[in-house]
Computed example of a mutant assay.
Amino acid sequence: MPRHLSHLSLVAVNIDGVLLNDSFSPVMRRLVESRGGTYTPAFERDLLSQPQLVAAQRAADGLGGTAQQILEDYFAQREEYVRENPVHMLDGATELLATLRSLNVRVICYGGLERAHFTRHLGDVADHFDDPGYVCTNDFRPGIREITELFGLRHDQVLFIDDVARVAEAARELGTPFIGHPGEKGHGYQRQMMEKTGVRHIVGTLRAIDEALLRRVDAEAAAGNVWR
Rank of each mutant, 00 (worst) to 15 (best):
127 D>E: 07
82 V>T: 14
185 K>I: 13
169 E>L: 06
105 V>K: 07
194 M>T: 02
181 H>K: 10
166 R>I: 10
126 A>T: 05
74 Y>S: 04
147 I>L: 12
104 N>D: 10
79 E>P: 00
100 L>G: 10
163 D>Y: 02
91 D>F: 07
167 V>C: 04
110 Y>P: 03
172 R>C: 05
190 Q>V: 02
180 G>Y: 00
81 Y>F: 15
182 P>Q: 01
119 T>E: 14
184 E>N: 05
152 G>K: 13
193 M>I: 00
147 I>A: 04
175 G>D: 13
184 E>K: 03
173 E>S: 10
155 H>E: 03
131 D>E: 15
123 G>L: 07
179 I>V: 09
121 H>L: 05
169 E>G: 08
96 L>Y: 13
178 F>R: 11
70 I>E: 06
159 L>E: 07
91 D>Q: 07
148 T>N: 09
126 A>M: 07
185 K>G: 00
94 T>K: 15
138 N>H: 15
129 F>A: 09
105 V>Y: 02
158 V>Q: 07
149 E>M: 04
167 V>N: 05
89 M>A: 07
140 F>N: 03
141 R>V: 01
156 D>W: 10
80 E>W: 05
88 H>E: 14
193 M>K: 13
191 R>G: 08
79 E>G: 11
133 G>C: 09
81 Y>M: 10
191 R>N: 13
152 G>S: 05
138 N>G: 04
188 G>E: 15
118 F>G: 02
188 G>S: 11
98 A>E: 10
179 I>G: 04
151 F>K: 14
78 R>K: 14
136 C>N: 14
109 C>H: 08
169 E>P: 03
171 A>I: 01
70 I>M: 09
166 R>E: 00
92 G>N: 06
187 H>M: 12
88 H>D: 05
143 G>L: 03
137 T>E: 00
91 D>C: 04
144 I>W: 04
158 V>T: 14
113 L>D: 05
124 D>K: 13
191 R>H: 11
83 R>S: 12
161 I>E: 09
172 R>K: 15
133 G>K: 15
111 G>M: 02
163 D>I: 07
147 I>H: 13
173 E>L: 14
125 V>L: 06
128 H>W: 10
170 A>P: 00
113 L>I: 00
134 Y>S: 03
94 T>L: 15
136 C>I: 05
